[in-house]
Each structure stands twice: as C-alpha cells, then as structure tokens.
Amino acid sequence: MKTVTLKINGTEHTAEVSPRTLLVHLIRENFSMTGTHIGCDTSSCGACTILIDGKSAKSCTILAVQADGTEIITVEGLATAEGLHPIQEGFHLNHALHCGFCTAGVMLRAVELLEKNPNPTEEEIRWGISGNLCRCTGYNNIVKAIQWASAKMQGKELPSTEPVFV
C-alpha cells in the first residue's frame, strides 16, 4: 500500500491505496465524488476526464499513486462561490447534454482547450474534443456551448442560445 496525498477541488485528501488503484477509482470510491464517470476500458471515451495540474487527463489511464502531490479539478470543482463556470452555463443554455454521462469529461476537456486557445474555430473545437465520446447530442450543441463559453470568458457579446432552424 502507498499513501497518496493530493488536492481535489482545493481540498487536500489522503488515502492508502494499492499501486494498481486507478485514479478514477480513487476519486469515485475513496473520496465519493461520483461526477467523474467511466465509459470504457480502453482509454477511448473520455468520460473520466479531469484536470491534473491544469492538464486534461483520462483518469482511468493514470494510477492513483502517479497523482500524489498533484492538484486535481473534477466537475464538482468547476463552480465557484460566485456561480457556475461559464462552460457549465454554456452547456446548460445551449442544450449540450442529454443523458449527462459524458458531460463532466467534455466540460473539463473544454476548460483546458479554452485556456490554451481562448478563441477556437469550430474545427479546432471538434478536434479538441475528439477524445470524448458523446452518444446522445450529435456534438452540434457541444460545439455551440464551447463557443458560448469562449465568448463569455473573454467578455465578448454572447451568442444567442436559441436553436437555429433552417
């Protein structure tokens, strides 16, 4: 067993784990934060995406022991006392989630994407979330939500959140 100490959403946590414990299980089982999900066994779906020291990461492909001493943000840590994170607002207002299972992972991935590229094109957004599978939304509104969050985070005029029909 190894002792792991890490900060999750600003709070320090410690646990004794065996080296094979996956980070996603540490977060979900040991620390009972179940907003991070598991959707596959081949590191393909991105449902488990979190931020480790600001980098988006598939927490099913990282050992808990590797995360010792890191700072982690999960979906539970996106909102602040002031309110929802713009990406959360963007997802809600633009109907970018149906069943919600992929949502945490896509949002956290989008947070890093916007951090590095505050003004991404549609193409950059699509490639930027290509490690996240969503079976429900068809991605159109996820793209729209990220564009909305991009505008909001830069203090730009907010795009309409009404659905557009031909």
Binding site: S43, G46, S56, L113, S130, G131, N132
Partner: peptide
C-alpha cells in the same frame, strides 16, 4: 502529433 490519439492522451 495531431493524428496521435487525442488531446488527453497527448498530454501524457
């Protein structure tokens, strides 16, 4: 790089 896996994998 652009064609290797996906952004999360490329972070590691």
């Amino acid at each position: 790089s652009k064609l290797i896996a996906d952004p999360q994998v490329r972070n590691f």
